[in-house]
Design a protein around this nucleic acid. Sequence first.
DNA 1: ATCAAGTGCAACCCAGAGGTTGCGCATATG
DNA 2: CATATGCGCAACCTCTGGGTTGCACTTGAT
Lengths: 115, 115
Amino acid sequence: MVSPGASAGSPVAAFAALADETRWTVLETLAQDDGATGLTASALADRLPVTRQAIAKHLAVLETAGLVESQTVGRERRYRALGAALTALGRRLERIGDAWETRLARIARIAETLT
Amino acid sequence: MVSPGASAGSPVAAFAALADETRWTVLETLAQDDGATGLTASALADRLPVTRQAIAKHLAVLETAGLVESQTVGRERRYRALGAALTALGRRLERIGDAWETRLARIARIAETLT
DNA sequence: ATCAAGTGCAACCCAGAGGTTGCGCATATG
DNA sequence: CATATGCGCAACCTCTGGGTTGCACTTGAT
């Protein structure tokens, strides 16, 4: 069950995936989809001002990063946003930041006792 | 006090800043610095396999994203990693992911009652 | 059987990012 | 004063990323 993606390994790929405005628009459009069955690349291309092929590339990046899931239904491929992956990545960032802070605080405390 | 950066506005810039391996190395090197006074670009360039100018560019990106702080001391400029910014960004991601999940769960619940 | 819709793959274009070298300027230090 | 250290700016190179167009393939609809 330890699927590779945003929740494992180096998260740099996930950050790269999140570092593009269009990709965020895609993600948010997917997240706000009422169908719960997902949207196809063509459907997304209808709502966004970019080509279907561009959307397809973005979806590929997002899927590689583990931020999106796809399911093939007949001739079409439906994509769904994975909020859990985002949450996991966020928690990870949080922990790293906390670690840095506590380390800094510890050093500051030591420096104070030396004074 | 509402300084722009990772904790305000669009976080895309912060993700772009975190989407590079070298930049992570810089951040981690800064975070593991024992001085608590920060490191200069030259000091970082000594420990990393890239030029000082490259480091300087990375530091500029990180500072713009609000992930790093700089302090000029005489002729040198010391940089410190801001763990709090990382933590804030992480929390933000977490909340977005949670929102997507709850929305999806709600839709699933509605679909179930319709069955 | 024909036609439309949806996809995938490939080539191509162009702007921007990461990196380098080279220079000039400011600031400690002998 | 002379010298070494640290920095900033600018030019340049190369490669990747976002985007497009074009075409061929599958699958559902008529």
